[in-house]
Design a protein around this nucleic acid. Structure first.
Lengths: 340, 340
DNA sequence: CTGTTAGCGCTTTCAT
DNA sequence: ATGAAAGCGCTAACAG
């Protein structure tokens, strides 16, 4: 018994008059131990209430069995469901997870990267912040040979993987959906253009307009950080436009909701339909009026996929430093307003 | 240099021709080392890019510097903001955090408790599941001398702490608010009665009615798990009641929203005002029609408070096994419908 | 198949 | 004020 009153492999060994290394092997189910002794050892282990000390094991193996997860903010539904997927996959494989929030700030992201390094995580899953335009902190991780998988927000660094949705297609589908429902003057709420996801959604919007011979107008594209306040600002801009806007394609849910709310407060006309991209299975869309059509993007799936990819990197010493990008499917969920 | 290409205290010691124990002391800012040698050591540490190996350090100290956090579901806004508060406080003190979801299921909660034990966390923060009516898994943690702090959902186990809001007062305030706004027939959406928070909110409701001489009616209390579907069911029951309901006091946000949505879909009259308890700074309430008055309960604050309390238990060997309950203030946020 | 031995990198007595 | 030595609990050569 050690000082914490917990049995160690030595206690088991002593009780059975064998060596602790055999106990270790048995407990790790090594083929180099007879089934009979394994049984004896396992029985004794249970009897003594033995539990492996991961600290010691990990130190010896110089692995932490911990993954770092960096997201802009945990309260965003997309990310909290992604985290659920990440944890499910990680726990299954015996990995723990430490979750960090960048709050969309580069400086915080850099600090987090340092912490993760100091904690010697075995791998990192990250959705970069909107501010992230320099990548040294991420490259530092790669230099220490820590695998990185980017999810949702694309990042182009050598020897890293990406798990994304097809943002171009989603943007195209969202916009076309509006057009097919009769919208002509469609405004686009876009995000910061240094993020690929927003550039691609924007391009999808443009191409859909082209396809349907609707002229593209520069002043119909409103770029922001897509926070709720930005949505409100966007709504004001819409009202100031010399056109009757009959559709909005917002690159995320939050800004769309902000705009909606403002328009309602002002007693203004609500565009016929609003398509939103970047939306997980959040309940908000189903409770606001008019119901929003959304592009469904399962955070849970993305989290799971990204994690298994990362774990394969963490475990396979073989296929080291191969970049890979996985694109997951999205689907458009149409919601008709009940009041029409 | 070790196999991971990382400097150790031995590397620093060798380079400086001193012993590694001195290096260790210096790096821990022990008073038993001269400032001059400390400076030398720190300089060399930086030069070599030294980073402490926490695994080794923790093994030696037999502490994990990890806290377990168990919540019903991370996607609930109240819990995700509580987690943010927990992390902020924990990281400041050099602790990591592992987050687990019980999904309101006792069985999962029991498994999680086992895992946390196996991981030898230094302390546990938990909001018990709605199903939790047996407490062996939690007592097992206490037996291993792992401090526990319950937050939001009260749990009465010896030698543990609770960080709560005043649910009785909140229930009272919510109900009185409805009464003062003219409601007479006020329905209460209640949660499972094995949780104190719901019993207390329920009692607050009753006492508020009493105070204002409004007769209490058994059939105005609808108990459920307070999921969205339950809200829908509740709404149906309301419509079937032989009274004109003019107020709802829901013990949480989710059920209230479910009910609202159903009532709207059916084109039914919406009660004049709805007070909700159990509500964090979630944006939902501000985007639905009619606006809901809510009891504001800051998950972030609760998380922070609970964590500092837990850390004091984890660190102070002195005041061991003293139970304590902290009650945090809530405030009612009134929102007038814009359409009235 | 099992035992011996030597550490992983750090902290902590106990000396000096 | 610093050094020497022991060991946290486990794993992984290397023997036999």
């Amino acid at each position: 018994m050690n000082k914490n009153n917990k049995a160690t492999i030595h206690d088991i060994a002593r009780a059975l008059n064998i060596d602790s290394s055999t106990v270790s092997r048995a407990l790790n189910d090594s083929p180099r131990v007879t089934q009979k002794t394994k049984d004896k050892i396992i029985a004794k282990a249970n009897e003594l209430g033995y539990q492996r000390n991961h600290l010691a094991s990990n130190l010896r193996k110089s692995k932490t069995y911990t993954l770092g997860v960096v997201v802009p903010r945990i309260s965003r539904h997309f990310f909290s469901s992604a985290i659920a997927g990440i944890e499910e996959t990680a726990y299954q494989e015996g990995y723990n997870v430490v979750i960090c929030q960048s709050l969309e700030a580069l400086e915080r992201e850099q600090k987090i990267a340092e912490t993760l390094l100091a904690n010697r995580v075995d791998g990192v899953l990250i959705s970069i912040s909107m501010e992230t335009s320099s990548y040294e902190h991420l490259q530092a991780l790669r230099q220490r040979n820590i695998p990185i998988v980017f999810f949702d927000r694309f990042c182009d660094i050598p020897d890293t993987c990406n798990v994304l949705i097809d943002d171009f297609q989603a943007g195209f589908n969202a916009t076309e959906h509006l057009i097919l429902n009769g919208s002509k003057n469609i405004v686009h709420f876009s995000g910061t253009q240094n993020l690929d996801i927003y550039r691609n959604r924007y391009n999808g919007y443009k191409v859909a307009l082209e396809k349907h011979n609707i002229p593209f107008r520069e002043d119909f594209v409103l770029s922001s950080k897509l926070m709720k306040e930005d949505g409100v600002e966007n709504a004001k801009k819409i009202l100031a436009l010399p056109y009757k806007i009959d559709g909005i394609f917002s690159a995320n849910d939050v800004a769309a909701i902000g705009a909606l709310q403002y328009l309602k407060e002002q007693g203004k006309r609500i565009p016929e339909d609003i398509a939103i991209v970047g939306f997980s299975n959040e309940p908000i869309s189903s409770i606001i009026e008019p119901p929003l059509s959304t592009i469904n993007q399962s955070g849970f799936e993305i989290g799971k996929t990204a994690t298994s990819l990362l774990l394969s990197k963490v475990n396979n010493k073989t296929s080291k430093s191969i970049s890979e990008t996985i694109i997951l499917k999205t689907n458009l969920i149409e919601r008709k307003s009940s009041v029409r």
